[in-house]
């Protein structure tokens, strides 16, 4: 088994759309919970991860320039999960069930570099 990080990316407008009404917000949440619970039940979730605020600060370059960002309108990472899967193909397949996709978002599937050789 190898480890992968799922990075959930979506734009603010698609996120707003996903929860335009209380009912939709709840349905969207239930979908996420069902999906993550299912992955966990099948032994794929190493760590369910955490949600992230959509904006904060960006520190850049040698000057340590501090700016606001990332800009909420762009696709930003809204959270992550640490996943265990056989290979990257299986990890990608697991990501296919993620509710963020329904709102036009993306899941980045990134293998965690292994320490051992």
């Amino acid at each position: 088994m190898s480890e992968y990080v799922f990075l959930y990316r979506s734009s603010e407008s698609s996120q707003r759309e996903a929860m335009g009404t209380p009912q939709r917000a709840q349905q969207s949440m239930e979908k996420w919970r069902a999906w993550l619970n299912d992955l966990a039940a099948r032994g794929h979730v190493k760590n369910p991860g955490l949600p992230l605020e959509r904006s904060g600060k960006v520190v850049s370059g040698k000057q340590r320039l501090v700016t606001d960002g990332p800009f909420a309108e762009k696709d930003v990472v809204g959270g992550f999960t640490l996943i265990e899967a056989r290979d990257v193909a299986q990890a990608a397949e697991l990501a296919g069930g993620c509710p963020v996709l329904e709102g036009g978002g993306h899941v980045e599937v990134r293998p965690v570099l292994k320490m051992e050789l």
Binding site: A25, M29, L36, P48, L50, P51
Partner: peptide, 16 residues
Amino acid sequence: AVQDAFCRAMEVWKFG
């Protein structure tokens, strides 16, 4: 404010 509370709930509750 209420709408934002739902957004926040959904973001936080879905992971934990």
